[in-house]
Write a protein that binds this DNA or RNA. Structure first.
Lengths: 184, 184
DNA sequence: AACTGACTTTGGTAGCCTTACCAAAAACCA
DNA sequence: TGGTTTTTGGTAAGGCTACCAAAGTCAGTT
């Protein structure tokens, strides 16, 4: 399964680095070093191509995040790891591109529904491991806040917005962490 | 100033209802009932058109929100008003479309930077009026959470996601409201 | 009323990019 | 060898941006 993987990887890179508007058949074919007509042999329509690349990219991103979290001490590096992923990786760009695409493509929308569910449960486990009460409400707010910080960063792409991601996540975790300094 | 306003209003409607990908010169001209070549007389490039429509749309949206908040009791209807705006209006679609556009258009990015600043201060005033400590941190988190909820709704466009916006905002406000039930 | 100059509107089009095909050549493998 | 899969070159059709020259409109002036 060489070629198909080449396509997915090349397309994924394109998606992460140039945004969804760069994901045209000619550009993907160029990046994957194959003829454009060959690309359509594997992915007959643009929609199919976009969907496949999106699935691949999102899976890769989630695995990447999981790996980073695993290799860092959960209770200590959670904020740092999360913000680093959001700033250095390109989840916001991918996510936002897909939301726009979902406007004209129900399949993409379904994909996003699955994605949100997956991320939600991942966050829940994360909070539990970090000793935070992972009620449904707390999980929802945590998820929303991180998404919001990342999106506002993607919108501005400034040093200031990056700092907000970092500070915001740290702040969020601090707020939700039960302070056991208060003796019962 | 008839025609130019027609263009902006038609374009704005297009942007809110069909997303940024519908904002092509032919479609805007069609919606505004003018010839496409006439459209380029007022807005020579697509970039200029997009920027003007974006500015108009964002201003309109913000005024609209402000008006709704003014006509509702701040302390009581804040959550309801905010969530209604986010769900019924189309700020998330507009916002997200512009973020994608900003990837290839520095002017749009500048516009978004200004927008975030404006919304941030608006939120700060809102929190103060609602009797919530509007520290910089609290304001940041409030802003991010609302953006996150709205974006996740736009991504999924389901009944469930709409409910999350509603519940999430209510929850957020409850969490941040100082509970004066505890007697000192 | 006729003229003038600026602004507005129209029709048309060149050039580019994109998607989606298809037929034929090449490579592969049973 | 024969049949299937992969790869290539080519292209039709359509949409988009950005122009341009010509025609029309209108206010103010003579």
């Amino acid at each position: 399964m060489g070629i198909k993987d080449d396509i997915l990887m090349a397309g994924s890179t394109l998606l992460r680095e140039k945004g969804v508007s760069a994901l045209t058949q000619p550009q993907v074919a160029l990046a994957a070093n194959i003829k454009q007509s060959h690309l359509t042999y594997y992915f007959p329509t643009r929609s199919a191509l976009l969907l496949a690349i999106a699935e691949f990219t999102l899976s890769t991103l989630m695995e990447d995040v999981a790996a980073r979290l695993r290799s860092a001490p959960v209770d200590k590096g959670l904020a740092g790891t999360l913000s680093r992923v959001m700033i250095e990786g390109f989840p916001p760009r991918v996510f936002i591109g897909l939301i726009v695409a979902a406007d004209n493509d129900p399949d993409i929308r379904k994909l996003l529904r699955r994605l949100v569910r997956r991320v939600r449960t991942a966050i829940q486990h994360l909070l539990e491991e970090a000793g935070i009460t992972a009620s449904e409400e707390a999980t929802l707010l945590f998820h929303a806040t991180i998404v919001g910080l990342a999106v506002m960063h993607q919108a501005r792409m400034s040093r200031e917005s990056a700092a907000e991601v970092k500070d915001g996540i740290a702040l969020l975790i601090r707020m939700l962490t039960p302070m056991e300094r208060f003796p019962t």
